[in-house]
């Protein structure tokens, strides 16, 4: 369990994180999304006590990271690829980390095998590829068999096999009841790995919600309908929540009605359909939509919210992700 409360970090005049409040629960993989410069890495560094918050606090399992007597057993972290001395071997890096908390050498060999670095463990890290560096970072995170994992861009630089491996690993770790918190800019990967999302933009919280709700909230699904009887169908589908756009004479872009319902209505009235294609909004589209709004709010209108309002209101609150149809139906 990671709990951030009104977390704020300023570097001189620049605000990296502002009033960020969220909870990362055990048992599910939680994704941390945001455009570059949104404050993801800064937040992760504050979780690990590397950066001191300007105000607010962040705790792991009820304590500040530094207050845990055995931090590596509590939180495993992958902060950036190769936070390792380039002149040292992977084995000695892990051995020195293990030594700080009395982890036996046996465990060092175990994590090296687990991430598949057996053959290069005695080589200097300076010669490692990005993917090998990531594997070493993951080995470091797993060293203390921690209940909480904080991973900044863990799939960065991994080959497809490595990406699949880490996805399976993270899901199994979460299934064991651990807290898994990872950032990634690869939306498709996040959609496959994470169940819950914390989305930030410009250092502020945009959404704290499940992946499914986030996608649903950002933009409604659309259905493309091609029918020779477009005018009749349009009249039949009409309703307060329904938006219908027409691109071509016999094509309707419908939102607010599921493809199932459109099919039933058409059948009931004997309308021939040539195409009935539901288009699901991808996480990427949802993300672009949400973060674009954050930027707009920052420049002009009212604040998107400090995030403080969501503090402690329970795990399933989704304060700022109501359905938004604006700008979609033309």
């Amino acid at each position: 369990m990671i709990t951030a409360e009104a977390l704020t970090k300023r570097y001189g005049p620049k605000t990296a994180v502002e009033g960020l409040s969220f909870t990362v629960r055990p048992g599910v993989v939680t994704g941390f999304l945001g455009p570059n410069g949104a404050g993801k890495s800064t937040t992760m560094r504050m979780i690990l006590g590397l950066d001191r918050p300007t105000s607010g606090s962040v705790t792991v399992n009820g304590r500040r990271y530094a207050d845990h007597p055995a931090p590596l057993h509590e939180v495993g972290a992958l902060l950036e690829a190769k936070a390792v001395h380039t002149g040292r071997s992977a084995y000695h890096h892990l051995l020195s980390m293990a030594a700080t908390t009395g982890i036996p050498t046996r465990r060092v060999h175990q994590v090296i095998r687990m991430v598949g670095l057996d053959e290069v463990a005695r080589k200097r890290v300076g010669g490692f590829s990005l993917g090998m560096g990531q594997r070493l970072g993951i080995a470091t995170a797993l060293l203390g068999d921690p209940a909480t994992l904080v991973l900044d861009e863990p799939v960065n630089g991994l080959d497809p096999e490595g990406v699949l491996w880490i996805r399976t690993l993270l899901k199994s770790l979460a299934a064991e009841g651990r807290t898994v918190f990872l950032s990634s800019h690869l939306m498709s990967e996040m959609a496959l790995t994470a169940e819950h999302l914390i989305v930030v933009g410009r250092g502020r919280l945009i959404a704290d919600t499940s992946v499914a709700d986030f996608i649903a909230g950002a933009a409604p699904d659309q259905v493309r309908v091609r029918t020779p009887d477009a005018d009749r169908l349009r009249a039949l589908l009409f309703g307060p929540e329904v938006r219908i756009a027409t691109e071509e004479r016999d094509v309707l872009e419908v939102s607010g009605v599921s493809s199932d319902d459109i099919g039933r209505i058409a059948a009931a009235h004997g309308i021939t359909l040539f195409e009935l294609v539901p288009h699901r909004v991808s996480l990427e589209e949802a993300f672009m939509e949400s973060t674009r709004d954050a930027v707009e709010y920052r420049v002009g209108g009212p604040s998107v919210g400090t995030g403080a309002t969501s503090a402690g209101t329970g795990p399933n609150t989704r304060p700022r992700t109501g359905p938004r149809t604006r700008g979609r139906a033309a």
């Binding site: 007597p69 590596l72 001395h85 002149g87 700080t100 209940a147």
Partner: peptide, 27 residues
Amino acid sequence: FAARAAGRGRVTFVRVLRAEWIKLRSL
């Protein structure tokens, strides 16, 4: 892991000394 975190693996000065010794000799 929960039980483990509670009792074991405390960071002590002797352990930090050992870690720094490993770091010094491995470069």
